[in-house]
Amino acid sequence: WKITIYDQENFQGKRMEFTSSCPNVSERSFDNVRSLKVESGAWIGYEHTSFCGQQFILERGEYPRWDAWSGSNAYHIERLMSFRPICSA
């Protein structure tokens, strides 16, 4: 599993790669995730830290803005603060 997060939209700004769970992006000096690329595996992104709040399934691909992973939710969530890989047995 591999995911790359960015602190600006369209894959700009600070970037960081992960191959395992991140319970709080702010502990990695990110205020928020504004864009991301899922390089391999599937991940679950969460609205809040500690894997809480609205969940987003993140499959392999590029997500240049928050609405790319938020989709058409009843209330739009511009925040992604934690994530972890989906492990299959």
Rank of each mutant, 00 (worst) to 15 (best):
Trp1Lys: 11
Trp1Arg: 08
Trp1Ala: 10
Trp1Asn: 15
Trp1Gln: 14
Trp1Ser: 14
Lys2Cys: 06
Lys2Leu: 11
Ile3Cys: 05
Thr4Arg: 04
Thr4Gly: 02
Thr4Gln: 07
Thr4Val: 04
Ile5Thr: 04
Ile5Phe: 04
Tyr6Thr: 00
Tyr6Gln: 00
Tyr6Arg: 00
Asp7Asn: 08
Asp7Thr: 08
Gln8Lys: 10
Gln8Pro: 01
Gln8His: 09
Glu9Lys: 05
Glu9Thr: 09
Phe11Glu: 01
Phe11Pro: 02
Phe11Leu: 05
Gln12Met: 09
Gln12Trp: 04
Gln12Val: 09
Gln12Lys: 12
Gln12Arg: 11
Gln12Asn: 10
Gln12Phe: 08
Gly13Cys: 00
Gly13Asp: 04
Gly13Met: 00
Gly13Ile: 01
Lys14Arg: 13
Lys14Gln: 09
Lys14Trp: 05
Lys14Gly: 05
Arg15Gln: 15
Met16Ala: 11
Met16Leu: 12
Met16Pro: 03
Met16Gln: 09
Met16His: 08
Met16Glu: 12
Met16Asn: 05
Glu17Arg: 07
Glu17Pro: 04
Glu17Ala: 11
Phe18Tyr: 14
Phe18Pro: 00
Phe18Thr: 02
Phe18Arg: 01
Phe18Val: 07
Phe18Trp: 04
Thr19Trp: 08
Thr19Phe: 08
Ser21Tyr: 06
Ser21His: 07
Ser21Glu: 11
Cys22Ser: 01
Cys22Lys: 03
Cys22Trp: 03
Cys22Met: 06
Asn24Lys: 03
Val25Gln: 04
Val25Asn: 04
Ser26Phe: 10
Ser26Val: 12
Ser26Tyr: 10
Ser26Gly: 09
Ser26Lys: 10
Ser26Trp: 06
Glu27Arg: 07
Glu27Pro: 05
Arg28Asp: 09
Arg28His: 09
Arg28Gly: 10
Arg28Glu: 11
Arg28Gln: 10
Ser29Val: 06
Ser29His: 11
Ser29Lys: 10
Ser29Gly: 06
Ser29Trp: 05
Phe30Thr: 02
Asp31Ile: 09
Asn32Ser: 12
Asn32His: 14
Asn32Cys: 14
Asn32Ala: 11
Val33Trp: 01
Val33Ile: 11
Arg34Met: 06
Arg34Asp: 03
Arg34Asn: 03
Arg34Ala: 08
Arg34Glu: 04
Ser35Phe: 03
Ser35Glu: 00
Ser35Asn: 01
Ser35Gln: 01
Ser35His: 01
Leu36Trp: 02
Leu36Phe: 11
Lys37Leu: 05
Lys37Asp: 02
Lys37Tyr: 04
Lys37His: 05
Val38Asn: 00
Val38Gly: 02
Val38Phe: 03
Val38Ile: 06
Val38Leu: 02
Glu39Gln: 11
Glu39Val: 10
Ser40Cys: 09
Ser40Ala: 15
Ser40Lys: 09
Gly41Phe: 01
Gly41Thr: 02
Gly41Ser: 03
Ala42Cys: 14
Ala42Thr: 14
Trp43Gln: 01
Trp43Met: 03
Trp43Pro: 00
Trp43Glu: 02
Trp43Gly: 03
Ile44Cys: 15
Ile44His: 12
Ile44Lys: 04
Ile44Phe: 09
Ile44Asn: 06
Gly45Glu: 00
Tyr46Glu: 02
Tyr46Asp: 01
Tyr46Ala: 01
Tyr46Met: 00
Glu47Leu: 02
Glu47Phe: 00
His48Val: 03
His48Arg: 13
His48Lys: 15
His48Leu: 11
His48Thr: 04
Thr49Lys: 10
Ser50His: 15
Ser50Cys: 08
Ser50Thr: 06
Cys52Val: 13
Cys52Arg: 14
Cys52Gln: 14
Gly53Leu: 02
Gly53Pro: 02
Gly53Phe: 01
Gln54Ile: 04
Gln54Asn: 14
Gln55His: 15
Gln55Tyr: 07
Gln55Phe: 06
Gln55Lys: 11
Phe56Gly: 03
Phe56Leu: 09
Ile57Asp: 05
Ile57Gly: 04
Ile57Ala: 10
Ile57His: 13
Ile57Asn: 09
Glu59Met: 08
Glu59His: 10
Glu59Trp: 06
Glu59Leu: 07
Glu59Arg: 15
Arg60Ser: 12
Arg60Phe: 07
Arg60Leu: 12
Arg60Asn: 07
Arg60Cys: 15
Gly61Gln: 00
Gly61Ala: 03
Gly61Leu: 00
Gly61Tyr: 02
Glu62Phe: 14
Glu62Thr: 07
Pro64Trp: 05
Pro64His: 09
Arg65Asn: 14
Arg65Pro: 00
Trp66Ile: 09
Trp66Gly: 11
Trp66Val: 12
Trp66Tyr: 12
Trp66Lys: 15
Asp67Tyr: 06
Asp67Phe: 05
Asp67His: 13
Asp67Gly: 09
Ala68Tyr: 14
Trp69Asp: 06
Trp69Arg: 05
Trp69Glu: 06
Ser70Glu: 14
Ser70Trp: 06
Ser70Leu: 13
Ser70Ala: 08
Gly71Trp: 08
Gly71Ala: 13
Ser72Trp: 07
Ser72Gln: 11
Ser72Val: 12
Asn73Ser: 12
Asn73Gln: 14
Asn73Ile: 06
Asn73Arg: 13
Ala74Val: 12
Ala74Leu: 13
Ala74Arg: 13
Ala74Ile: 12
Tyr75Ile: 13
Tyr75Met: 13
Ile77Asp: 12
Ile77Gly: 15
Ile77Met: 14
Glu78Pro: 13
Glu78Ile: 13
Glu78Trp: 08
Glu78Gln: 14
Arg79Val: 09
Arg79Asn: 15
Leu80Thr: 02
Leu80Tyr: 00
Leu80Asp: 01
Leu80Asn: 00
Leu80Val: 06
Leu80Ser: 03
Leu80Glu: 01
Met81Gly: 07
Ser82Gln: 03
Ser82Asp: 05
Ser82Pro: 03
Ser82Leu: 01
Phe83Pro: 00
Arg84Thr: 09
Arg84Cys: 02
Arg84Asp: 04
Arg84Gln: 14
Arg84Gly: 02
Arg84His: 12
Arg84Glu: 13
Pro85Met: 04
Pro85Ile: 04
Pro85Phe: 04
Pro85Ala: 06
Ile86Gln: 14
Ile86Cys: 13
Ile86Tyr: 15
Ile86Ser: 12
Cys87Tyr: 13
Cys87Pro: 15
Cys87Leu: 11
Cys87Gly: 12
Cys87Phe: 12
Cys87Met: 12
Ser88Arg: 13
Ser88Lys: 10
Ser88Phe: 06
Ala89Arg: 11
Ala89Pro: 15
Ala89Tyr: 06
Ala89Met: 11
Ala89Asn: 08
